[in-house]
């Protein structure tokens, strides 16, 4: 099964709507609550990343009985140094974003922690493609 969502940069009020929707779907599909939790936490972090840093983005969620794969493609500034961005606590978020309680620099590290596979590709000035997979059995 596939689901698509759109994310607008800067729209913090709606950040989390894709993860909430995916969560409802996974509960209906009887996916193990612990795995559901990990996927939802990872997706929420990724969603907020687009809202906080990019202009807009698309989320593609693919669900099969074996695995769940989520790809987030955004148009945005891209990530200069992915290795550095993966470090817990490192953040390029603006003061405004931090004021709203986001931008603690835990995003990518938290996504990695909650997923079985993670892949990130980025082009500075163009955007980022983040893809992650959780196995269901």
């Amino acid at each position: 099964m596939e689901f698509e969502y759109k994310v607008e940069g800067g729209d913090f009020t709606n950040a989390g709507s894709a993860s909430s929707s995916v969560k409802k779907t996974l509960k209906k599909l009887n996916v193990d609550p612990k795995i559901t939790r990990k996927i939802v936490v990872a997706l929420y972090e990724a969603e907020v990343n687009i809202v906080a840093h990019a202009y807009r983005g698309d989320i593609l969620v693919k669900i099969s009985p074996e695995q769940i794969n989520i790809t987030l493609t955004d148009e945005g500034p891209g990530i200069e140094n992915i290795e550095q961005a993966m470090v817990e606590g490192y953040s390029t978020a603006s003061a405004k974003v931090r004021e709203m309680g986001f931008g603690a620099g835990m995003g990518l590290a938290n996504i990695k922690k909650n997923t079985d596979q993670m892949n990130i590709q980025s082009e500075v000035g163009k955007g980022t493609v983040l893809s992650f997979t959780n196995f269901l059995s």
Partner: peptide
Amino acid sequence: MMLDADML
């Protein structure tokens, strides 16, 4: 919440 215990 589940629609069926079997995921397929």
